[in-house]
Write a protein that binds this DNA or RNA. Structure first.
Lengths: 272, 272
DNA sequence: GCTTGACTCTCCCGCCACTGGAGGCTGTAC
DNA sequence: GTACAGCCTCCAGTGGCGGGAGAGTCAAGC
């Protein structure tokens, strides 16, 4: 019979942990002195404790281990749990590898530029979205505005108010200075709007993953933001799978000064 | 100005999380209605929130992120944190890969044998240990006993009691049926014992890692236990770096029946 | 038999980043 | 005026212990 301290040395499990395992009924001492409360263990309990340690090392939770060691499971069930565990570990490994890539990307940015990056990229989901929209080819990026005018005029006729910020979708495969193929879209929720002229009502595609960058400032030069976003996408092993969007969260219509305008740029992406 | 629900949709951060970030001062709403307690956010807060999300994605804790976003850190400090983080992630990856190997090893055991493994292997440390010991070549495994007799007789002369279970160290590189090179050792703590005859007093080497298997039962056949242990060591990418030990936690001297005897087998190992 | 000091006991708090729920107030649409 | 979605605060719980307080226990040495 060992007292808890000796048993702790033998098994190399902290005393606190042994008491905790007693409390949750995972490894009970062979004998407890009713008068003093002292726990006494025997060497015969080591195999059970070692089973617990081994299963813990495989990454199982203590309540799962509880079932294993108390024999409530067949070999098939155990096999199933192990397969599941294997899948989880593989997923963890993928996550951690992606995280490592992100850390290394940021490290490169800092060592190259000598300063913190100016924008942040996050991966989010894009929900489907009902919009009123006009698509057309405009002369350049500055002349997208009138398209929004068309859409808003149409909504005005139906007395429908937008339910979210306006956005632009860019369909060109590569960067173009002129003749930009763009769609101006305004979310309208479930409101009834009859299509008319160039304005149509449709549902924007949803995406499992979009790489998103949010920037603050006037609409003078989006190039650095686009460059950071593209570089992030490439470094992190994603590829672009759809037209990018610009979402004008705070724009000229807000009445705030241009420095306070906030725009989100999104690229639908998938792991490549 | 967005209410918390809209801001949650924009940022894809749960409302509960936004309230928590407010509470810990990480992302405070732009305005709080003093009468109702309603939180109001602006689009201008999205970049800060996105920074938080991006750093969280790198695996930083919220209090570290707190320092980052409140500009208490220079680019060099940030770089240092990132290098540290990279090292941690690499360590995690190694751990998880080792875990995956262990899970796969156990999965092989189950599918091959159709049942749960009978013994468990755990990695532990071996502390240095002062012992009285006799080393010699004996005829076979059954004839180790008399060596312990020699040691115990010597201890008796000095009226010294063992401070732990007796153990045997096996020095043969490979398995031998006959002429086994073995050392019988008994821990004596700090007691003074003059070496005499074949009995010497020495300190057993400590090891950073030993693969340990604990079995219950009589001393009739250790072969399956040794096989499981060797197979585990090989499957998990370890190699043996010293003589193995058998530790007789409960043995004949305990007076218990042979089925209750408990023996631990240890191989010093290192990752190869 | 007494003292000392190492060991053990229970109980409670803290960790981390939230999540869930109860109970009550507020804003908006019809 | 009345639903009803949305918002508020407060509290408890998560997992697997670790730290520490305050009190009791055991074994050895004198």
């Amino acid at each position: 019979m060992f007292r808890i301290g000796e048993f702790s040395k033998l098994s190399q499990v902290p005393v606190k942990t042994l008491r905790y395992y007693d409390e949750i009924g995972l490894v009970r001492p062979a004998f407890v002195d009713a008068a003093t409360g002292y726990r006494y263990y025997t060497a015969e309990q080591l195999p059970r404790l070692n089973t617990v340690l081994a299963l813990k090392d495989l990454g199982f939770k203590l309540d799962q281990i509880h079932e294993f060691v108390d024999d409530h499971l067949t070999a098939e069930q155990m096999e199933g749990m192990l397969r599941l565990r294997r899948a989880e570990i593989r997923a963890n490994l993928q996550d951690e590898e992606a995280r490592l890539v992100r850390v290394e990307h940021r490290l490169r940015l800092i060592t190259q530029e000598g300063q913190m990056p100016k924008h942040e990229v996050v991966i989010k989901k894009a929900a489907p979205l009902r919009v009123a929209a006009v698509r057309g080819v405009v002369e350049n990026y500055q002349t997208v505005g009138p398209l929004f005018g068309e859409v808003m005029a149409e909504l005005g006729k139906h007395a429908v108010a937008p339910v979210g910020p306006p956005m632009a979708l860019y369909y060109d495969e590569e960067y173009k200075e002129k003749d930009v193929d763009v769609e101006a879209a305004v979310p309208i929720g479930t409101a009834e709007v009859a299509p008319s002229g160039r304005v149509q009502v449709r549902e924007l595609e949803s995406y499992e993953a979009v790489a998103s960058l949010t920037r603050r400032g006037p609409y003078d030069d989006f190039t650095p933001a686009y460059q950071e976003l593209m570089s992030w996408i490439q470094s992190n092993g994603y590829r672009i799978v759809g037209p990018n969007r610009e979402i004008y969260l705070t724009g000229p219509e807000s009445g705030s000064p241009p420095e306070a305008w906030v725009t989100e740029i999104q690229f639908p992406v998938a792991k490549s």
